[in-house]
Amino acid sequence: MARRIATGDPTPVRWLLITVALGFLAVFLVLPLVAVLAEAFAKGVGAWWVALSGEDSRAAIRLTLIVAAIAVPLNVAFGLCASWAVAKYDFPGKSLLVSLIDLPFSVSPVISGLVWVLLFGAQGLLGPWLQAHDLKVVFAIPGIVLATVFVTFPFVARELIPLMEEQGRDEEEAAIVLGAGGLRTFWSVTLPNVKWGLLYGVLLCNARAMGEFGAVSVVSGHIRGLTNTMPLHVEILYNEYDFVGAFAVASLLALLAVVTLAAKTGLEWWHRDEIAASRRH
């Protein structure tokens, strides 16, 4: 839907409100980003590059990519399943289910890490069994993946559920009545309708997966070069008085955030007609 222009507000009021809003955003959003970049490049691009190409930094970047590559597809598959189930059918307890899907959003990251330690730690419920079979979950990559999956769990589903609900069920029902199978209906009717929402959900899910700190910190064990993700490596460098290094890795994560947002805006811009069309349903 095209945005309409307000006719009622006098120009001074309009500019005052714009100024206040932009001022607020500048102080609370833009300045932190600028601070990260300024610190990262404080000693020039050379120092920035040296900090990023160190062995431990590379290991942290690699681990972060591996974790995101496992966590994001899992949550995409789940998000599609869950939003389909919630939007396309009526069943008792749906409201509770939606609340439960939202739950990881509001659980403190520290708790999100703690629960895995309670479950899989040496003193945890399954700890003795895991140790007897020489399986490592917490303080190793599986634990980091689990904590990340937990934290990024709702992103895709939350993006898709309202979108699918808004679009209703008429098209799918029509497709079914016309003889299409469930899977075919999903691929050729539902998915095209929600693909932009899905993409946006994936982008945010990915950004959060790569940037999670609190939960991963609890289960990581902080072994240099092995179980440190990028955000944890930022903290380590910061604690080693290597401020350029810390902010260099941080700037990479900040750039990731900016690229994520730019990609989202770009997609919306290029496909605005299609998006407007799918909204009209």
Partner: peptide, 17 residues
Amino acid sequence: AMVDLPFALPTAVAGIA
């Protein structure tokens, strides 16, 4: 687009900044 920055910026980075 900037409004989503806190979603995407890692919390540790935000804290230091």
